[in-house]
């Protein structure tokens, strides 16, 4: 039996349901009862219970694409800051996708401090040590562009339903975007005005993430910015 409606705002300790439901993140079970553990929106799908959090840090998950900044290097790789309580470890072989002879090759030619890297979380162990890889096309070191940081809980809103928001941002904003699950977003574009407009749009999405009709408002705002100034 459910005690809340779909998309209802819940607070920690609130009773959500009783009975044999499957419980995912944001909720926990105590005997037959299911309670919320965070402030968020209840996402109920048949037998599945999940709470979409409204607040919180990025916790690395296997398979997530993240954007990180190189903060340190070691013998065989680099340490990346992922806007999270945990740092990521990227080995040279996971960056280049080949065997690297560390005696013969100087790995500093591939990445240096402060570089921005698009990477995928390869593995997270129980001590939250994060292993990254950057082998897929479009991953690895980022050239040019602008890095924007938003709250990781707002990332789904930036992408939108079936990527609708992301398409609006890219098409109307005349920019190319790469969104990391950790809330770091890269923007590339020709027109600096439009890049700034997209940054504004992203901050607006972060601010108004709970409201409906956001995609249309972002569309309008970008169109307005576009018509106001030329090159």
């Amino acid at each position: 039996m459910l005690h809340v409606q779909n998309r209802e705002l819940v607070v920690p300790g609130q009773l959500i349901a009783e009975g044999g439901y499957r419980v995912y993140e944001g909720a926990f079970r105590e005997g037959k009862q299911v309670y919320a553990s965070v402030v968020g929106l209840a996402d109920l799908h048949g037998q599945d219970i999940r709470i979409i959090p409204l607040q919180g840090r990025y916790i690395p998950k296997r398979g997530d694409v993240v954007i990180g900044v190189v903060v340190d290097s070691h013998y065989s790789g680099w340490i990346l800051d992922m806007n999270s309580p945990y740092t990521g470890n990227l080995f040279v072989s996971d960056l280049l996708q080949r065997k690297v002879d560390l005696v013969r090759e100087d790995i500093n030619q591939y990445l240096s401090m402060g570089d921005v890297v698009v990477a995928k979380v390869k593995d997270v162990d129980e001590r939250m040590r994060v292993l990254l890889e950057a082998g897929e096309p479009g991953m690895g070191r980022v050239e040019g562009g602008k890095l924007v940081k938003i709250s990781p809980t707002k990332v789904p809103r930036v992408i939108g339903r079936k990527g609708s928001m992301l398409n609006t941002l890219q098409d109307v904003g005349e920019c190319r975007l790469r969104v990391g699950q950790n809330g770091q977003i890269m923007i590339w574009g020709r027109n600096p005005r439009m890049i700034n407009a997209v940054v504004e749009a992203l901050l607006m999405i972060e601010r108004e993430a709970h409201t409906s009709g956001l995609t249309d408002r972002v569309h309008l705002m970008l169109e307005k910015m576009k018509s106001e100034g030329g090159e």
Binding site: V11, P12, G13, G26, Y35, V38, V39, L54, Q55, R57
Partner: peptide
């Protein structure tokens, strides 16, 4: 703590 999104059993 709840506002920070830290998971908790109850307040």
């Amino acid at each position: 703590l709840a506002d920070a999104g830290v998971p908790m059993r109850d307040m």
